[in-house]
Nucleic acid binder design. Structure first.
Lengths: 183, 183
DNA sequence: GCCGTCATGTAAATAGTTACATGATTAA
DNA sequence: TTAATCATGTAACTATTTACATGACGGC
């Protein structure tokens, strides 16, 4: 079996839900996978083409009068098998998560402590906002998608986001105290 | 002033330390920035060339008899100014950290709970190993680089890594319990 | 004689974003 | 009339990794 990249598998995965067009996939991603997998149309449309070409999905052009044509993709048994095989494979390595704030902080001795304080305060603020977004999405799932077969798994990934973000916020607070001592 | 990418700034930053050749930069990165910024030779050498071209660093070819020539780069005042300016800029957005484990977990309903348990156990193991690596590096800095002007900042970034990794490990344990109930 | 370390570099492939192009409908 | 939503797509650019090529030294 051919190996695809993770973005292709992400799209195959979304095709197991109600979403079946490029546009719908993007919508779905922006609302739910956004915190750990994000892609642009520039990747979605060519990937869908490839998926269809390789027989992992079948295309159906749906025409609604007075609406642009919509290409609907439906997973074939081969497509579902390819997805399942990938899910079962253990990941080969945990990738390095690039962090621009840490990169700037690492070279912080070339800067005044006050500027470092600003950097950290700004970062903390963004993390707090992110945390609140997670909570909002979580509430949405709890209220509207409780019967959805995937709901439990969606909540797991959100819980991850919340826990890791909370740890990062606490680190900000702790580090801010340390840096302020240097002023 | 021209805008460079973060990788270029990372290299400029490393040039403020004792490291001044492509090879030394790679060594340094692998030992210290590795957990939040990783680059390959394929990026380092071309970037160093660009940095020199733009007058951000000067090159000095050091020849030791019976050794390959070494290109030593030294930051110019312009290079240092460029670095400082970048450090001071607030980051424009916190990027999405891609996570293959979360991606597989998100589509977990297409798989048996036992397989999900394996996925999480494997992930947890890798995170524990990572945590231990951070502790080792931390001890190294505390014992060997205490007088180093950058040591405090290096420890801050390690603390971040430890806290976030610990939160992820705890999430694994918590989620494993939940998934096991489904079996 | 082989392996690890020191040392520099390029070419090809892959991955991904951004900007652009198009065009219809609906609601304010 | 203007903005938002629906809908698809491509071209150019940027970023990055991987694989390859080269070669000397020192220790086992």
């Amino acid at each position: 079996m051919i190996a695809y990249n993770n973005t292709t598998y992400a799209i195959l995965g979304i095709l197991t839900t109600e979403c079946n067009s490029g546009y719908a996939i993007k919508q779905f991603m922006d609302r739910s996978l956004n915190h750990f997998w994000k892609i642009s149309y520039g990747q979605i449309y060519p990937t869908l083409k490839l998926i269809a070409q390789d027989g992992l999905a079948e295309v159906n052009v749906s025409s609604t009068p007075g609406r642009a044509d919509k290409n609907e993709y439906y997973l074939t048994p081969k497509g579902l098998a390819t997805l399942k095989e990938w899910i079962e494979q253990p990941i080969d390595q945990v990738p390095v998560e690039r962090n621009e704030v840490l990169l700037k902080l690492f070279f912080g001795s070339n800067q005044s402590p006050e500027k470092t304080v600003s950097l950290l305060q700004d970062y903390k603020q963004r993390l707090v906002t992110r945390y609140e977004t997670y909570e909002t999405i979580e509430q949405g799932i709890l209220h509207h998608d409780k019967e959805e077969k995937d709901a439990m798994y969606w909540l797991f990934t959100l819980d991850y986001g919340k826990r890791v973000t909370e740890a990062a916020i606490q680190w900000c607070e702790h580090t801010l105290k340390q840096v302020k001592k240097e002023e």
